[in-house]
């Protein structure tokens, strides 16, 4: 048995793996690319924000317009995310628990906002509610302002974050089928009880995942909101828009200070997202990963 000819040669390597130098080279290329294009810009945000020290950083945060921008961003997300959450659940229930024709087309329509440029997402509401838009004159007569006001910002945000929750839930609930719900119904549960005690526990992590991504986009959206907001300081300025105003005013540190808050949000989003994927991966996709 100890015939040296039968023992694996010392230089043996898997026939389906690259040689060591090639692996090292590829990992190096990937690390450098990600370092230059992703990590470096992220780090730069914090360094530029703290360029004049911690005092200047918190000084910039104390500005009234900045605080209003933070408040408005939180408020817009607090409306847009729950709205799309309710839609996502309703759409996923209708699509995954029943069989009807035209389902694939409906799913395509739900994903539509992702293929539309954010600027066009803003434009469609200006065309509807702007002063020269379809309903502009009527709204004007009744003193209702949508464009250049908060309702327009909320609408544009809802549009760009529209598919996030639905697209996480639909494939998962489809995969899970209808047997558990049918069992619950046959044992006398109401529709609401079935949803709350059977369906919801099965999809809760995917739901959180969708809400997380939806929220990150809602708080960070720039293009769509820029078109409908009118950039009125202290009134219709969300955090991303406020960054632009400060930046164009050459208030470099203040711009990066507000940017650093959004970068922190992005980091928290990434950490929670990764944690959900590692811990509950199989419950997000409906099968073992």
């Amino acid at each position: 048995m100890s015939d040296p000819a039968l023992a694996a040669p010392r230089t043996w390597r898997s026939p389906t793996a690259e040689i060591r130098p090639v692996r090292a080279l590829l990992i190096g290329i990937a690390a450098v690319f990600i370092g230059v294009f992703l990590v470096f810009p992220l780090v730069a945000v914090f360094i530029e924000a703290l360029r004049n020290g911690v005092g200047a950083y918190f000084g910039a945060l104390g500005d009234a317009d900045t605080q209003h921008a933070i408040w408005l961003t939180l408020m817009v997300a607090a409306i847009a995310v729950p709205a799309n959450l309710v839609f996502g659940i309703a759409a996923a229930w209708a699509i995954s628990k029943y069989e009807f024709r035209g389902k694939a087309f409906l799913i395509t329509l739900i994903d539509l906002p992702f293929s539309v440029s954010p600027v066009i997402a803003g434009l469609i509401y200006v065309i509807m509610f702007g002063s020269h838009g379809y309903f502009g004159p009527w709204l004007n007569d009744h003193n209702i302002q949508i464009i250049f006001a908060v309702p327009g910002i909320v609408l544009a945000t809802i549009f760009v974050t529209f598919p996030f929750v639905a697209r996480e839930l639909i494939p998962l609930m489809d995969e899970q089928g209808t047997q558990e719900e049918e069992a619950a119904i046959s044992l006398g549960a109401s529709g609401w009880q079935t949803f709350r005690r059977v369906t919801l526990p099965n999809v809760k992590w995917a739901l959180m995942y969708g809400v997380l991504l939806c929220n990150a986009r809602a708080m960070g959206e720039f293009g769509a909101v820029a078109v409908v907001s009118g950039h009125i300081r202290g009134l219709t300025n969300t955090m991303p828009l406020h960054i632009e105003i400060l930046y164009n005013d050459y208030q470099w540190v203040a711009a990066f200070t507000v940017a650093s808050l959004l970068a922190l949000l992005a980091l928290v989003t990434l950490v929670v997202k990764s944690a959900l994927e590692w811990r509950f991966g199989h419950e997000l996709t409906g099968g073992p990963r």
Binding site: P41, F256, L262
Partner: peptide
């Protein structure tokens, strides 16, 4: 590395814009 690949999905575009310009 795997987690950071999603950064462009999570980082608001305005933030990406000013920091890339700064670099």
């Amino acid at each position: 590395l795997d987690a950071i690949v999603d950064l462009p999905f999570a980082l608001p575009t305005a933030v990406a814009g000013i920091t890339l310009t700064a670099i």
